[in-house]
Simulated assay, not measured.
Amino acid sequence: MNKKFFAAVFSALIIVISGYVFAQSDTETITIKTSSQCEMCKKRIEKGMGLEKGVKSAVLNLDNHTLTVVYKKDKTNPEVLRKALSNIGYDADDVAANEKAYKKLPDCCKKGGHDHDGHDHSNHKH
């Protein structure tokens, strides 16, 4: 093979890599402390946040009650994301849960919902 072919392939590879890096730089990641309680909360939060404009992924860690959201920074921002989580019915860092949405949550999804009867609900599935 000749030098021109390798130069063309190398140039094309640089363009592809540059495009990929540029495309990835339009996202940011935020971790939000939530008032989540159980698997039902996890499903509700991940589904609800996944529907928000600009959200690429939303994953809730039930062990530490944190939500990790990858989002397009030109479509949304942390304040909007915290407000969206509040509107689902959960605390989002220092943004309190929307009272109306919180009241609609099942009892097990409310703060201390798995502590009310003295039983261990850590493996409780809904």
Rank of each mutant, 00 (worst) to 15 (best):
M1K: 00
M1R: 07
M1T: 06
N2S: 04
K3V: 14
F5W: 14
F5K: 11
F6L: 15
F6S: 04
A7T: 11
F10V: 03
S11C: 13
L13V: 12
I17M: 13
Y20F: 14
Y20L: 13
V21Y: 15
A23R: 09
S25A: 11
T27F: 12
T29W: 08
T29I: 07
T29K: 06
S36H: 03
S36D: 03
S36I: 02
C41P: 14
K42V: 06
I45P: 12
G50N: 03
G50I: 05
G50L: 05
E52K: 01
E52R: 05
E52T: 05
K53L: 08
V55D: 14
V55I: 03
K56I: 09
A58S: 11
N61M: 05
N61L: 01
L62I: 04
T66M: 09
T66F: 10
T68E: 14
V70I: 07
Y71L: 00
Y71G: 06
K72C: 03
D74S: 04
D74E: 11
D74L: 04
P78W: 00
P78S: 02
P78A: 02
V80K: 10
L81H: 07
R82M: 09
K83N: 08
L85Y: 00
G89R: 08
G89Q: 00
G89K: 03
D91C: 00
A92C: 04
A92Y: 08
D94T: 06
V95N: 07
A96F: 11
N98Y: 04
E99G: 10
Y102Q: 04
K103L: 14
K104M: 13
D107A: 08
C108N: 03
C108T: 03
C109A: 01
K111E: 15
H114A: 10
D115R: 13
D115T: 02
G118Q: 00
D120E: 06
D120H: 07
H121C: 01
S122I: 10
N123D: 15
N123L: 11
